[in-house]
């Protein structure tokens, strides 16, 4: 931070006040217009008709069911993702093997693929005429247009979140402590629980928070596989779209304000945890 004192603006007296002030002002105005106003507008519209209407909109059966389904999907997805994230980080940081880089790329792929393409992939795989469709039909297993499909697509979209936070940390920490534990006769599970986990707990929690936020907000991928059956397969983001298309804007904003509040909580947690890590 000390180089701030000798920033070029500070050494050139002619420009020292005007240019920074102008740039800061521009940054503030643009951020206000593009980020803050949309955020404020969500709450403004949600509460425009008063608290009573807001509460009634949230307690409307469709929206209530959507909140429940969204929580359910996150509750299934996030623990599975934590398990995968820790396993992948352990395999990739504690062992050398051929194809390690390829595996890393494969893990990162869902980040660069639009969720909508993920949804289409799942439809082509599990759909009636898809690769596994006929077999699933015979076994009477329902994946698409039901909770399993929504969970699977959410798992695809969120799969890199935990690994991405835990892996760099485990790599940086090295494995000396764990190797010492091995020589003392600890079992694999003991090493993980007593040595590794305490070291990575903040990164793990951080990844889990980001993963939950993404799971709760997923729209594109889920919209393809959910079939949008009212009161059955609508998650909260899909319910927002439904209400919006039904011209129930107040209801849509009420539902949206719940997700916005959640996003703000995540941001605060993120800031706190970044300081902790």
């Amino acid at each position: 931070m000390s180089h701030l004192d000798v920033a070029p603006g500070a050494l050139a007296p002619r420009e020292s006040r005007t240019v920074p002030r102008l740039l800061i002002g521009l940054a503030l105005v643009m951020t206000a217009l593009f980020v803050v106003v949309p955020l404020v507008y969500i709450f403004h519209r949600a509460f425009a008709a008063g608290w009573g209407v807001f509460v009634r909109n949230i307690l409307e059966p469709g929206t209530l069911h959507a909140i429940w389904l969204t929580a359910l999907v996150a509750l299934i997805t996030v623990p599975l993702n934590i398990g995968f994230g820790v396993a992948a980080a352990w395999a990739l940081s504690r062992f050398e093997f051929r194809g390690r880089k390829t595996l890393l790329t494969l893990i990162e792929i869902p980040f660069s693929i639009s969720p909508i393409i993920a949804g289409i992939c799942y439809l082509l795989l599990y759909g009636r005429t898809g690769l596994l469709g006929p077999w699933l039909n015979e076994m009477d297993i329902k994946i698409l247009f039901a909770v399993p499909g929504i969970v699977l697509v959410t798992m695809f979209v969120t799969s890199p979140f935990v690994v991405r936070e835990v892996l760099p940390l485990m790599q940086a920490q090295g494995s000396e402590q764990e190797q010492a534990a091995v020589t003392l006769g600890a079992s694999g599970w003991q090493i993980f629980r007593r040595v590794t986990l305490p070291n990575i707990r903040w990164a793990l929690l951080y990844g889990a928070v980001l993963c939950s936020a993404r799971a709760v907000g997923e729209f594109g991928g889920v919209s393809v596989v959910s079939g949008s059956i009212r009161g059955q397969t609508l998650t909260l983001p899909l319910q927002i779209e439904l209400l919006f298309n039904d011209l129930n804007t107040v209801g849509a904003f009420a539902a949206a304000s719940v997700l916005t509040l959640l996003a703000l909580v995540v941001l605060v947690l993120k800031t706190v945890m970044e300081a902790r890590r």
Binding site: G217, P237, A256
Partner: peptide, 9 residues
């Protein structure tokens, strides 16, 4: 952090 559907709305 904001779900895209919320941003769109």
């Amino acid at each position: 952090a904001l779900p895209t559907a919320v941003a769109g709305l």
